[in-house]
Amino acid sequence: MNDPLKNTTEARIAVIGAGTMGNGIAQVCALAGRQVTLVDISDSALERGLATLSANLERQVKKGLIAEADRQAALARIHPQTHYGALAGSELVIEAATENLDLKRQILALIEEATESDALIASNTSSLSISELASVLGSPERFIGLHFFNPVPVMALVEVIRGLQTSEATHAKAVAFAEQVGKTAISVRNSPGFVVNRILCPMINEAIFVLQEGLASAQDIDTGMQLGCNQPIGPLALADLIGLDTLLAILETFYRDFGDPKYRPATLLKEMVAAGYLGRKSGRGFHVYA
């Protein structure tokens, strides 16, 4: 199959947001040989993202997964910017901002204004409606969901989510792009949580209910699911990795959009987010991190 996106060093990908997901997406794109424009609101946000990205690449070198020359070449392909004018010439722009509908819609409108009419626009949303996000665009047919999983450099899957307005050509290009950067793509119909989070997040929420009811400790719940269900990481440790604020946002989306009480977030989850216990990124969640 011919590559719908140019597979050359001139082909430019842009990523909006240098946080956990954004810098991970930038990393895999750069390692795959793409020039990457990484956009965030401030130099300090970009510096934090690039520091994380650089440390992740260094870790891959130490593990023998990539060569030192690959690390240096990938870093050289990443171009940090604080303005949307830098998106000009991008073939694909991936929005990877916080899971907030209004914020994402504002960003998508800015992306469309700054890009050529044939550029693909994608969102890394983990739960929001692709069709609803696309409604802010003048050309919704070029919009699609590209849901990477955390940590992006390690996780092999990308959900490719088609909205009601997404064209066949956009879908084909998005699938090809995911494969170019070394991921396995699955095609998913637009629905809250798509496929993986639709199954995973209620399971994690139930583990939080079990902890909330005092049936077992956080460590014992995780150990039970690891050894009893052969999961590589327990559900509460996974919640800490995802971010409890992100998990809460996903569950609230499910609860609102499905109107089904089985998706109601556990009270303990809401209380922990309110207290700032967000998981690994804050140093404390269901477990404590150095």
Rank of each mutant, 00 (worst) to 15 (best):
N2F: 14
T9S: 14
A11V: 08
A11F: 03
A14K: 06
G17K: 04
N23H: 15
N23F: 06
I25M: 10
C29G: 08
A30D: 02
L31M: 14
L31K: 14
A32T: 12
V36Q: 11
D40I: 03
I41L: 07
D43W: 03
S44G: 05
L46P: 06
G49V: 03
L50R: 02
T52A: 05
L53F: 05
A55R: 12
L57C: 05
K62V: 03
G64M: 10
L65M: 14
E68R: 15
A69S: 15
A74W: 04
A74G: 06
A76E: 05
I78D: 00
H79S: 08
H83P: 02
Y84C: 01
A88F: 07
A88W: 05
S90H: 03
E91H: 02
E99D: 13
L101T: 11
L101P: 10
D102W: 01
R105S: 12
E116N: 14
A119I: 07
L120W: 02
L120G: 07
I121E: 02
N124T: 08
N124I: 04
S126I: 06
S127W: 01
S129Q: 10
S131F: 00
S131P: 12
S139L: 08
E141Y: 02
R142C: 11
P151Q: 04
P153M: 12
V154M: 11
E159T: 02
V160W: 03
I161F: 04
T166P: 10
S167F: 10
T170D: 13
A176T: 14
E179A: 15
E179N: 15
V181W: 13
G182K: 06
I186F: 05
N190F: 01
P192C: 07
P192R: 07
G193F: 05
G193K: 09
V195E: 01
V196D: 03
C201G: 06
N205W: 07
N205S: 06
E206L: 11
I208M: 06
V210L: 13
L211K: 08
L211S: 08
E213Y: 10
A216F: 09
A216Q: 06
D222H: 09
G224K: 11
G224L: 02
Q226P: 04
C229N: 08
Q231K: 11
P232I: 08
P235A: 03
P235V: 03
D240A: 05
I242R: 00
G243D: 03
T246L: 14
L251N: 11
E252R: 13
T253P: 15
F254I: 13
D260S: 13
K262Q: 02
P265M: 00
P265R: 05
A266Y: 00
T267V: 06
L269P: 10
M272V: 13
A275L: 10
G276V: 09
G279R: 04
R284T: 02
F286E: 04
V288L: 10
Y289I: 11
Y289L: 07
